[in-house]
Nucleic acid binder design. Sequence first.
DNA 1: ATTTATAGAACGAACGCTCGCTTGACAAGT
DNA 2: ACTTGTCAAGCGAGCGTTCGTTCTATAAAT
Lengths: 232, 232
Amino acid sequence: MLELKGHTSDDLCRSMLERHADVISVQKPVVALKKLKIIISAALKLSNSKGFQAMSLRDLSKESGVSMGGLYAYFDSKTTLLNMILTEVTGAVDRVLGNPPPEVVSDPIEHLKWLIEAHIRLTEEMQPWFSFAFMEAKNFPAKERSWAVDSEELTEALFADVTARAIADGRFRPGVTPLLPTMIKPLLQDWYVKRAKYRRRKVSVEDYIAAVQEMVLTTCLPVDQLAALAAR
Amino acid sequence: MLELKGHTSDDLCRSMLERHADVISVQKPVVALKKLKIIISAALKLSNSKGFQAMSLRDLSKESGVSMGGLYAYFDSKTTLLNMILTEVTGAVDRVLGNPPPEVVSDPIEHLKWLIEAHIRLTEEMQPWFSFAFMEAKNFPAKERSWAVDSEELTEALFADVTARAIADGRFRPGVTPLLPTMIKPLLQDWYVKRAKYRRRKVSVEDYIAAVQEMVLTTCLPVDQLAALAAR
DNA sequence: ATTTATAGAACGAACGCTCGCTTGACAAGT
DNA sequence: ACTTGTCAAGCGAGCGTTCGTTCTATAAAT
């Protein structure tokens, strides 16, 4: 099974500490990491249930057990807190999807299947982070919003690249819709946007990965290869 | 081309006036309709750019040109305003998708294609309303949220029904993923959630409808029918 | 004259954020 | 061994502001 590394909440908070050392006034790394994890986990919990805007810092203080003043040792404004979280999410996407294992890059179809699996597994392990990013990125100041869009387009570009390579190599059915790379994204996003629904219906990650791969491949592979695919 | 009726902003606001006559204190229908249209359109504009929570009633007052007191002649709380809009959206979905033309209901595959087209065309014409519903439904009190989920599941149920009929009739490939009806929804939603992206890329409604139909049908039709489909 | 509609000041609550004070761990000085 | 000094860390009442909502005075329509 595909293994991904470096995005436990521990890893992510450690990365946040480094990235925002200028704004975080707590010096001792052990203390800082421990508290930051608590604060971020509380922030994700509250934001994902009522929205980031609707979460007041008093809510966050109560949920995390850190006082108002204490919170401001970890960020200098509520908007900074938002950006700190969003930055880690896009960072994780770039790091994971941008580094495919060497054995898949030579075959565009294997690469495509890997991208689908890696994306779904990553969002599964970082589920609250992705829900947060998806829900909140829209509602914010022009600056932050535009790079949220950029990040979305960057992911899509990975699918567009691999699709273009497959077409150039004659591995896809002629005339397959040019919208294919665009349409993969919403299928991947549904896994974390509607996570509760899939949990309720007992759909496993593996089920979902297989379903998306099936749908995408049947859309783009040459017709004469589909029988073999279905037979597996 | 498929024609849908009864969901211009005029129709929708008229319906809002009837449905919430108890809460709207303005008596003269002509005046009420005119102003309500202005208020709702301003509310959708502001909400879709900064989020419903972040839209203050002072923003809304300024944008619509209606005073604070004036606004409260049309709703008795900000939450009521939210519900008034959401109610019209789910109402339109039920009305349109629940009434397929007689000529398609006998054939599950035609019915499926019609559902896809009707959903995308409806969300195209009511785009700001659907964006609003999608973005805001999540962040709200248990009551409103649960029926937002219900409404989502109801739409999905229509796809599940028609899929089940197609399978019973032997019209689908054996072993097609049971997740198919679930996965159609995010494809349909992408049209209004990421409307700006598709506009920027000059993707027309017709293009998008065709692409979704292609993707769905290639996933579920028997392999020996796909060549014919591709040839069209 | 009476009803209907509108404007905008006013209100209490809650917001993000600040700041002076307390705490506690640890090292220096005796 | 004990006291003292130091400073990072944490606290929460309070600041100015803005929120949703209400109210009263006025204007318009009938």
